[in-house]
Write a protein that binds this DNA or RNA. Sequence first.
DNA 1: TCCGGAATGTTGCATTTGCAACATGGTTTT
DNA 2: AAAACCATGTTGCAAATGCAACATTCCGGA
Lengths: 214, 214
Amino acid sequence: MENLSKTELFSGISDEDIQQMLVCFQSFQKNYKEKETISIRNSFGDYIGLLLEGCISISRIRMDGSLDMLEYIEDSGIFGDAFTFGNQEDAILVLCEQDCRVLFIEKHHIIKRCPNACLHHSRLVENLMHLMAGKVMRLTEKVDILSHRSIRGKLLCYFRILSTQAGSPVFPLPFSLMALANFLCVDRSAMMRELKKMKEEGILERNGKMMRLL
Amino acid sequence: MENLSKTELFSGISDEDIQQMLVCFQSFQKNYKEKETISIRNSFGDYIGLLLEGCISISRIRMDGSLDMLEYIEDSGIFGDAFTFGNQEDAILVLCEQDCRVLFIEKHHIIKRCPNACLHHSRLVENLMHLMAGKVMRLTEKVDILSHRSIRGKLLCYFRILSTQAGSPVFPLPFSLMALANFLCVDRSAMMRELKKMKEEGILERNGKMMRLL
DNA sequence: TCCGGAATGTTGCATTTGCAACATGGTTTT
DNA sequence: AAAACCATGTTGCAAATGCAACATTCCGGA
């Protein structure tokens, strides 16, 4: 019902065709409020989620209760158990960090060939390719960050990415320090200690969530 | 010149059409021998590499000389600077672990829409979607492994994946112990120590590269 | 076959990290 | 206003990790 033609997934497809596809795809939209849980593992197993608005985090909850953020998805990111992979013991938590609007599409319709040969299906697939390429880049970035052995290495690697994105040595953290520790998969207090050290050594300035890399 | 129609990328497309596309795409194939270097960062910046045969590793070389394996690609995996992301200080090494056959395609032709509207382009894009989905899964797996804080956690997480893939608690390591340490981004000697402990505790049996998870 | 290089295995030690516990400050709820 | 809550800081300590150095085994080429 909303204007989907402006989203990256449906760009270049007319509103009528979009409506037709949505029916053909048996897709549905859902709105969520901040801090609401989208799904725990497997509830949307056969669907791919497309984040139209808002931002979400995907985390693993271990048996001991510890929580590690696997992904942080903002713009028109894709997610779903199809990607969050199958043979997982621990629970996966998909949490809305802001009010969100999500479009669910049956995996089948996107990955496999459409038997109805919808006219604009291939355009959709091409758009989806863009989104996938973006996801691959973000995941590669994440692997890059986590591949650093030390907390300082992870912090610096991530800060450089943020700094490059902002196009300036000054940039804001996209989330809280607590969430940052989860994102980097390190202990929060150890991270605070390291941040303090880096400040003392003059590598970094910090004022709340605003950072300056020197 | 070889039989590309059997590859995942070109499946469902006739040999004639493939030949036509290869010209249209300005693509080229190249063979590499074991331990040969495919490219150092940026040499194939505008091309996407498709591994037709063999297997390769993608690693980061740090300024201090340490080497971390970011990806290990076997079947018909895709790689390229397009994915290995841009604002990277360290050198990226793409190394052939076996004799390899690689098809390079200009990124442009795959990501953007083809002006010539090749008949089978959309089928190709759909095939590529499969490959991308596979890559996303592998990367998600890797993030999952690296998100564990301890060496033991990383080892167990990876071994469980291998065990599930093999469909048995007994499975072979796909590479050497040295490479395993690089893949997990941990110190090799510390990893050996941990493997020994796990053996002593009866969690794991090991004979060379053959592992048994208990 | 012998040699040399590479992978494997082992250990001591300094450092880093995680963990637990607690103090502070800000914000929301009652 | 008080209470409750949560994020931010801080610290001591035990355990895990990285690092360096070295012994041993494996393997391919001369």
